[in-house]
Design a protein around this nucleic acid. Sequence first.
DNA 1: TGTGTTTATCGTAATATTACGATGTAGATT
DNA 2: AATCTACATCGTAATATTACGATAAACACA
Lengths: 109, 109
Amino acid sequence: MGVTKTENFTEAQNQLASLAKALAHPARVAILQYLLKQQTCICGDLVEVLPLAQATVSQHLKELKSVGLIKGEIEGTSVCYCINEAVWEQAKNTLLKLFTLPINTKKCC
Amino acid sequence: MGVTKTENFTEAQNQLASLAKALAHPARVAILQYLLKQQTCICGDLVEVLPLAQATVSQHLKELKSVGLIKGEIEGTSVCYCINEAVWEQAKNTLLKLFTLPINTKKCC
DNA sequence: TGTGTTTATCGTAATATTACGATGTAGATT
DNA sequence: AATCTACATCGTAATATTACGATAAACACA
């Protein structure tokens, strides 16, 4: 079916999954890394940096924007994209919460 | 096209993306949380815990296994799945590395 | 006003993912 | 051996993702 049964999982599980989904493409990882590194951040740069067409980059930006990890402000003709620091911190904590859960020692393996 | 141009991104970017992809479904998040919490870990439990058919659960387990986050050992008739702690730690560090990158203060937004 | 520049959106093709019933397989049990 | 149990795999349908050319929209500038 290709449709995730979100309604049968917890809010937290769905949230973590959609955050992970946003990171689940190398282009989006690259975009985030670039935005973290750069001081100015204009979309045009990204099209030059990434091995993808302009339309595709725009699509990836849209996805990152929809989960809130980045925000874009119109700056004359171009758009200034940057990390949304609040959401970024929140995302970090969400992931950390999963990875710092205690691992019970298993009886079997 | 639906096919990711992995060859144009760095090894690290692709690795992070495929790790994230493994986490990008609430069922897989739920599986990991369950495995972290449980001391014994038999697949049959998961089918009862998750709101999904056995075939679907098996499919999700396969994906988690393929990125190495979990490992399964045959234990008589059933299979003992558990977190692969080494890979788990590595995954944690991979993600942390992204999220602890310094955020440059932006000139624009 | 007309023309370029920059980014978003549309349309669409190729491929991937999600889900499940049916079936296969392997060890356990009678 | 026949059967049960537990899990994997196959086949398939529905839907989502990825990518890009074409086009639209918004602003800048001559």
